[in-house]
Amino acid sequence: MSSAVVLIVIVLVLAVMLAVPWWVLVAGPTGRSGSWFRVGTAACVLGGVGLPIALFLGHGPPQFDPAAIVGDVALGVLWVVFTWSVIGLVVRGALSVGRVRGARVTQGIALGVVVVSVVLSGYGLYEARRVPQVRTVDVAIPGLAEGLDGLRVVVLTDTHFAALDRERWSRQVVDEVNAQRPDIVGLAGDLVDGSVDKRRDQVAPLAGVEAPLGRFYITGNHEYLDDAQSWIDYMASIGWQPLHNAHRTVDRDGDRLVVAGIDDPAGTDVAGHGPDLPAALAGTDPQLPVVLLAHQPKQVADSAAAGVELQISGHTHGGQIWPFHYLVRLDQPVVAGLSRHANNTQLYTSRGTGYWGPPLRVFAPSEITVLVLHPDR
């Protein structure tokens, strides 16, 4: 898809996202006249012009962090207002069918949309910025040695360190991870948005993660928006083991498990990158179960074909801001949680530890996941 087509699509989407709230919150309640109508219309026009500019300055070639912060917050709030404006239209239509209509109804619905949007935006900001809750899930693994029963795999993913400085949050996440007494920690991609020079300080606390059997990292699609190899090298420099289409065999008292990782499909256009599951599993003992880090849930099709016992993914954010998960589901087989696929391959999809873009999470809380492995008896 050409850049011109992408730009046109973005402009049209933003136009619709602004037009619906304008109709519900401005045009309808004012009867399209008066000072509030003029002020509201001007604000929508200003948003229609300013938001694309802020997003371009923040996420385009300028990489101007203050613009990214303004644009991302505005986009997240706009999505919430748009969603509830659509719901407001549906309610208004239903009431109209029942012959309940008039200026007071229109104004009451507009007020309701504003109140709900303000509350959910505030809640979403809090939910995105807090230290994620710990979610513990028991997973039965065929072929897992009895000596590895209870093995604790802590999953981080989609931290997306970006324009908003979250160094303190990063340290708090490390403390929470270590409190879970992990045997293994896996970071399943989308570590950052930006270069090592710009985001190093936010990522550096991850050096403090403690896991006696290994700390493993794979790339997500967002690493490939900048320089994925630089992040692979940096993570190695702070003691993590990048699984760049590779595996490691971990051992506890003679009982073993394969931990493998593959690149995100976004790396296909980068020389030496791109997912290569056969390479990642080459040389593994076929008698040992495999836990695979693969950023996108849809990579499970290849994992199932290869007989992988458990794939760990992120990418979806659980939808991040309701009801975006319905759109995510069009692209991915699973949005969140533990699921079973062909050949008894299991997939755990994390809702993510951080957030991307808008610093909001609405009805899609972030998580630090503890997968407790058990033999499938």
Score class of each variant (00 low, 15 high):
Leu191Ile: 03
Gly352Asp: 03
Leu89Ile: 10
Leu371His: 05
Pro278Phe: 00
Arg199Tyr: 14
Pro289Lys: 11
Leu151Asn: 08
Val100Lys: 08
Leu338Gly: 06
Leu57Glu: 07
Gly34Cys: 12
Tyr123Ala: 11
Asp255Trp: 06
Leu360Asn: 03
Ile232Lys: 11
Val105Ala: 06
Gly189Lys: 08
Leu14Cys: 13
Leu95Ser: 00
Ala54Ser: 14
Ala179Leu: 10
Pro323Ile: 00
Gly239Ser: 13
Val16Arg: 08
Tyr217Glu: 01
Gly76Pro: 00
Ala15Arg: 02
Val131Trp: 14
Arg329Ile: 07
His295Lys: 00
Pro333His: 10
Pro286Glu: 10
Ala15Met: 01
Leu144Asn: 11
Gly31Asn: 11
Gly60Asp: 07
Val70Gly: 11
Thr41Tyr: 11
Val139Cys: 12
Leu120Pro: 06
Val26Met: 09
Val258Gln: 13
Trp23Arg: 14
Ala74Met: 12
Pro333Lys: 06
Phe161Asn: 00
Pro333Asp: 14
Ala4Pro: 00
Val86Asp: 12
Asp376Asn: 09
Val185Tyr: 08
Leu14His: 08
Val370Arg: 11
Leu156Met: 06
Ala94Val: 07
Arg199Gly: 14
Gly47Arg: 07
Gly93Ile: 03
Ser96Glu: 03
Trp23Leu: 15
Asp158Val: 00
Leu310Pro: 03
Trp231Lys: 05
Val11Asp: 05
Ile238Trp: 07
Val362Trp: 10
Glu146Tyr: 12
Asp158Met: 00
Val13Asp: 07
His317Arg: 04
Val113Asn: 07
Val362His: 07
Ile109Ser: 04
Ser170Glu: 09
Ser313Thr: 01
Ala67Gln: 01
Leu111Trp: 03
Ala179Trp: 12
Glu127Trp: 02
Thr369Met: 04
Ala204Val: 05
Ala204Ser: 13
Ala54Asn: 14
Phe37Trp: 15
Met17Asp: 03
Gly108Pro: 04
Pro359Met: 06
Arg329Gln: 13
Leu18Pro: 03
Pro289Thr: 06
Gly208Asp: 15
Val80His: 01
Arg168Met: 10
Arg199Asp: 10
Ala68Met: 13
Val81Pro: 01
Ala43Ile: 15
Tyr126Ser: 09
Val100Ser: 09
Pro265Lys: 00
Ser303Arg: 04
Gln311Arg: 09
Ala128Pro: 11
Leu125Ile: 15
Ile87Gly: 11
Trp356Asn: 02
Gly214Glu: 01
Leu125Asp: 12
Gly319Ser: 10
Val90Asn: 04
Asp165Met: 09
Trp22Ile: 07
Trp169Pro: 00
Asp263Pro: 01
Val13Arg: 06
Ile53Met: 13
His222Gly: 05
Gly194Cys: 04
Ala145Val: 10
Arg129His: 12
Pro142Ile: 12
Ala94Met: 05
Pro323Thr: 02
Gly122Asp: 10
His295Asp: 00
Gly261Leu: 04
Gln180Trp: 04
Val11Tyr: 08
Arg377Gly: 13
Ser303Trp: 03
Phe363Ile: 05
Val45Pro: 08
Gly239Thr: 13
Gly112Pro: 02
Ser3Pro: 14
Val9Lys: 02
Val91Arg: 02
Leu292Gly: 05
Ala162Ser: 14
Leu46Ile: 13
Thr159Asp: 08
Glu367Leu: 00
Tyr348Gly: 05
Ile262Thr: 11
Val26Phe: 13
Thr284Gln: 09
Leu281Cys: 13
Ile141Ala: 03
Ile8His: 06
Ala305Ile: 01
Thr345Ile: 11
Ala27Asp: 12
Phe216Gly: 02
Asn344Val: 07
Val362Asp: 02
Gly93Gln: 06
